[in-house]
Design a protein around this nucleic acid. Structure first.
Length: 760
DNA sequence: GTAGGGTTAG
């Protein structure tokens, strides 16, 4: 090999100690013997040629030239390594770095940033620690590495330790705050120094944009000593995204440049404010569009569920990227057209983890978890790295649609990939088990997470609360504090709702009263809603009303909803009417509340008012959301709706229900016919109730799920009171544990009782 | 001739 042959002369031209810096290297080269100067300039020429090959993506040509060089310097190696890295060829870069005869400062710095780009902060840190001499470039690189991976405190420590700081270091620490959402710290830091670089002004303004803090963003813009096009585009984006399209337009006209960023910002501003037609007009007017502009317009149509227009643009666009395909696939999957989603997925030239997650989520959502899992397996075969976000994304779909079996199988893959002990995937896994109704498995995952963060604790506390295990929720709240994790607003919602779901009125009151003093958390509307629910459950309707009157802000629909729920349980029609009226005013489209009030009237036999409610719903155009329930059997989700006849096994399901009905009657069960929305004949009412979706799903689960395993059923609306009573009986008759999730909580039915204590 | 930061549109 030529490399070997020429190696001796190569090593002679090398500095002997790694402690030589670049400057020392170049000094040395100036005092070389004259007969070497020609070859030296040849080396430089080759290095330039390698750079050019690498810049045009020609790694092979670069390597060929590199291999043919009779003598190489560290710059030749560095050029190759850097070129491989910018072409995404990490492994070759690493191999060259590991094998190179002598590294200089640049080699180390290049490789550190290579590891950071490759998401391997640990390796970058190791190189940083190992390198013989560090300069400000090395320190800046590691600072940014910490910032990009969310370690703000570490980044700050690095910044404070740096022996020398330049403009880039200052921008690095400012960006560390901005990237990690610490806009207050960024703002404070900014005021401690003058003469910030233009990018730093832009960076801070961009931070305010992300937080929707228009006023501060504008102040920065007005204070800027110099503006470039990024500054103008950022401030225009601020106004466009916050709905002030007139101001955005004014600035657009005033801006010295209107480039493709500016135009696209305007288009997506109109889209985000629901003005799709206006957005399209601007889109058509754009002097120049790029793929992002097209994607923005397509995404606008997708979000407004107009897949036909989205498709039209998608087909017309001159150049598509992965994002364009992914947007379309997600759109079709979300609109239930899994066939079209799949066909695009198969056609696309390259897929990334988002494409896979979108199609897998589509199948999970359509109830085909078998196919979803199949794709998950294929994804790995296809070479797509099962990265953390792919897992998290798929797990969160499983949680949404309660695809328990699929979730469990993905758990197996998570273990293989070694992600189980980290927070990021661990929390998703934990949430999946909670929301799929298996609090025991959730707890095991929780235990396995090595560094539990506030989200892990909040998830398990809320999980216990929603499952009605108040004691366990509160125990974990105590453990959380002992572990030194500071409770936040979400924690307190979990704690209060644990008290509420378990009827712990005094405990809840105590936590509520002390949370500001002890943890510095100001009660928000969610906390108040929990308290009103808690007091209402205990029948203390007056206390609940008083608390509401004394709230420091206006009650929202959810808070009134808690009062309405309490009125329903305790039969206080007058209060219920008042609450419902407020909800109708705040959220006229909220059909659930019409139904709740109807039920309240029906329960007190006020059939005329029930009829009026129906008329009111008709007049306001509010449609009762259809109720449906689903149960997972052998990797397949089976969905039922009221009086369903579509299911292929509906005959035997109804037969089984009739049988159960007889046995329930023997046990003294009388259906709560007064809860049906109509004043109809007694027998007809009973039939209507019998076919509620939750009953059908429960029956099917009992028929198909092997004995000994719990039946997990999910409903999109609150469980009906009669079904609740019936399922208590059914659980006893068949000797099974039945777990039913509704939007509000989990009901665990076992031995004739439900752990919600009949309050939900 | 090789290395470090960042902001705006999907």
């Amino acid at each position: 090999m030529r490399f070997r042959k020429f190696y001796p002369s190569f090593s002679r031209s090398w500095p002997t100690s790694q402690n030589h810096t670049v400057r020392q290297l170049s000094k040395r080269s100036t005092i070389k013997p004259r007969n070497n100067s020609r070859t030296d300039s040849d080396i430089v020429k080759c290095n330039i040629a390698i750079t050019n090959h690498m810049r045009s993506g020609q790694c092979d040509a670069a390597l060929h030239l590199f291999n043919s060089m009779p003598r190489k310097t560290s710059v030749s190696y560095n050029t190759m390594i850097s070129g491989y890295l910018s072409n995404g060829n990490f492994q070759l870069a690493q191999k060259l770095f590991d094998g190179m005869p002598q590294r200089d400062l640049v080699s180390w710095n290049v490789m550190i940033s290579g590891y950071i780009k490759n998401k391997n902060l640990g390796a970058a840190k190791k190189l940083f620690d190992d390198m013989p001499v560090k300069d400000v470039v090395s320190w800046n690189a590691i600072l940014s590495g910490y910032a990009q991976n969310g370690f703000v405190d570490e980044a700050r420590r690095v910044f404070d330790l740096m022996p020398e700081k330049n403009e880039i270091s200052w921008n690095g620490i400012l960006a560390a705050y901005v990237q990690n959402g610490k806009i207050e710290e960024a703002g404070r830091l900014f005021e401690t120094k003058q003469n910030w670089a233009l990018v730093s002004w832009n960076c801070l303004m961009g931070g305010y944009l992300k937080k929707k803090r228009l006023v501060e963003a504008r102040q920065i813009f007005d204070r800027m000593p110099k503006r470039d096009e990024v500054s103008w585009n950022t401030i225009i984006t601020c106004y466009a995204q916050n709905g002030n399209l007139d101001e955005a337009r004014k600035l657009f006209e005033k801006s010295p440049v209107q480039d493709v960023f500016t135009w696209t910002a305007m288009v997506s501003g109109y889209i985000q404010n629901g003005k799709l037609d206006e957005a399209r007009r601007i889109f058509n007017e754009m002097p120049e569009k790029n793929v992002v502009s097209w994607n923005a317009m397509i995404a606008g149509y997708v979000q407004s569920k107009n897949m036909d227009l989205a498709r039209e643009l998608f087909e017309a666009m001159p150049c598509r990227n992965i994002s364009s395909w992914n947007t379309m696939i997600t759109g079709y999957a979300q609109s239930g057209d899994i066939t079209r989603a799949r066909s695009l997925f198969s056609m696309m030239p390259h897929r990334d983890s988002i494409s896979w997650a979108a199609i897998i989520a589509g199948y999970a959502q359509s109830g085909d978890s078998e196919e979803a899992l199949q794709l998950f397996v294929e994804m790995k075969r296809d070479g797509e790295i099962l990265n953390r976000s792919a897992f998290t994304c798929v797990l969160s779909t499983c949680a949404d649609v309660a695809a328990f079996e699929l979730g469990k199988q993905i758990h197996g893959r998570v273990i293989k990939a070694g992600y189980v002990f980290g927070c990021y995937v661990g929390n998703a896994l934990l949430a999946m088990y909670c929301r799929c109704g298996s609090i025991d498995e959730a707890y095991e995952v929780f235990n396995g997470i090595e560094d539990k963060d506030v989200v892990s604790w909040n998830t398990i506390i809320i999980g216990y609360a929603r499952h009605g295990f108040g004691k366990e929720a509160l125990e974990h709240f105590e453990l959380m504090k002992q572990a030194g994790i500071r409770p936040d607003e979400v924690t307190m919602v979990g704690v209060l709702s644990a008290c509420s779901h378990s009827g712990l009125v005094d405990t809840g009151r105590k936590y509520f009263d002390s949370m500001t003093q002890e943890y510095g958390i100001l009660a928000n509307s969610k906390h108040y809603t929990c308290m009103i629910d808690l007091l209402g459950r205990a029948g203390r309707l007056n206390d609940a009303q008083n608390l509401m009157t004394n709230m420091p802000f206006e009650p929202d629909a959810a808070t009134w909803g808690a009062l309405l729920g309490a009125s329903r349980i305790h039969g206080n029609t007058a209060l219920g009417e008042k609450a419902a009226e407020m909800i109708f005013a705040l959220e006229p489209w909220n059909s659930g509340m019409y139904v709740l009030l109807s039920n309240l009237y029906a329960a007190s036999g006020r059939w005329a008012d029930v009829g009026n409610m129906r008329l009111k719903m008709r007049d306001t155009g509010v449609k009762k959301q259809p109720g449906y329930s689903w149960v997972e059997v052998l990797n397949k989700i089976h969905t039922f709706s009221v009086g369903d006849s579509a299911h292929p096994e509906i005959g035997s399901i109804v037969e089984f229900l009739e049988e159960l009905d007889l046995r329930m009657k023997e046990e003294g069960y009388v259906s709560a016919t007064k809860l049906v929305l109509h004043d109809v004949e007694e027998e007809e009412k009973q039939n209507m109730l019998k076919y509620h979706s939750e009953k059908l799903a429960v029956a099917y689960g009992i028929m198909k799920i092997p004995a000994g395993r719990p039946i997990r059923v999910f409903k999109n609306l609150r469980v009906c009171e009669d079904c609740h009573t019936a399922i208590k009986h059914i659980a006893t008759i068949v000797g099974r544990v039945i777990i039913l999730r509704d939007p509000n909580r989990f009901h665990h039915f076992k031995g004739g009782v439900c752990n919600c204590g009949d309050y939900w």
